[in-house]
Design a protein around this nucleic acid. Structure first.
Lengths: 188, 188
DNA sequence: TCATATATTTACTGGTCAGTATATCTAAAC
DNA sequence: GTTTAGATATACTGACCAGTAAATATATGA
């Protein structure tokens, strides 16, 4: 199997796992939906868990790339970029295929903090937090760590609410809250 | 079986499901951990799903009762109570048995919005939102619906971050953010 | 003490799960 | 055309799942 076909397998698996859940998706369904035979899947991944980890790695990479690229395209100064985070969120939530956060769902299904899937999910959030912290520092916030944490908190809550209660108004409310928090955190 | 013994079954099941997850917990484990035989469980609940729904109902009732009671004990004016929400959150997160939000985890495992378990979880969030909205209206917020949504957002994000990244500082950051949002929303 | 009803134990059903064995197929290389 | 290597379909393994059947134990009530 070519490298690109392996990528197709991981991408399709990622889509199905995101849509239908991890434990609820059996290997037979993955065979059906990816078009890759079971033997071939197991040539590339020792276990289902390994395939899930590969799918999460792909999701992390693509999500953060798209997210950061959009933020840096939409705004230039660190302060503007902190706010542009919530335009990127708006685009995600109200875009085509929003179905909640794959990593929150993964951590929910694999609750043990030592579990590789839980740890991979936590690392995704840590990476987002590090990006926010970088922006908050460059924006010269009074307490960059706090501001970064508050904005990530807002983002996670926004995601959960859109997932559980629907999208109406959530993105707008979140952005307005972010604006207040950012403005207040940059007054010296 | 007495009514109280049935309550014990539901309470123990709730604890196990909260700790170990829904799909990852089999009926045999519930028999082992509740001390109630399988036949007796199935006398009271037609299916595992029905038992899960009963456990969620109990959790909703207890969580909201404890939460609201604490808020109303700690503060008297609506504005103070909006802020006291985040003292209750602090107590929950840094109390003994915090393991994330049972309803976010339930909605994550049963993603279909039409699924009874997903719907029950969404109703819990709706009930919290309704309480926040009531407080925001009584506090004469400029846009009560928005403030209520923003505070619930903050609360959900706080829960997710404490679950995935650990408790350090999260409650304090959330409360400080809430104070800023509330103050800003009440200026006329 | 006996009768009745309920709880429990044990064992089972049919189905699904992750992962594997085997045998067939395809396609390129010489 | 034959060989070789990898992909495939099919069928299987043993374990576990939710839910049930039947036999045994226990407690209640007259």
């Amino acid at each position: 199997m070519s490298a690109s076909k392996r990528d197709i397998l991981v991408r399709k698996a990622m889509e199905v796992l995101y849509r239908d859940g991890f434990q609820a998706t059996g290997m037979d369904k993955l065979v059906r939906e990816t078009g890759v035979s079971k033997m071939t899947i197991y040539k590339h991944f020792r276990t289902k868990e390994d395939l899930i980890l590969a799918a999460l790695r792909l999701r992390d990479e693509e999500f953060r790339n798209r997210f950061v690229r959009r933020v840096e395209r939409d705004a230039t100064t660190p302060k503007e970029r902190l706010l542009a985070i919530f335009d990127a969120m708006d685009a995600w939530i109200n875009g085509g295929d929003f179905q909640g956060c794959m990593f929150i769902k993964a951590a929910s299904e694999f609750q043990d903090r030592k579990h590789p899937i839980h740890m991979a999910s936590a690392e995704h959030k840590q990476a987002l937090l590090a990006y926010f912290l970088d922006l908050a520092q460059k924006a010269a916030a009074k307490d960059p760590r706090r501001l970064a944490g508050q904005l990530l908190m807002l983002m996670e809550g926004e995601t959960v609410m859109a997932f559980m209660l629907g999208k109406q108004g959530v993105a707008e409310d979140a952005k307005k809250a972010a604006k207040v928090l950012i403005d207040q955190a940059l007054i010296h």
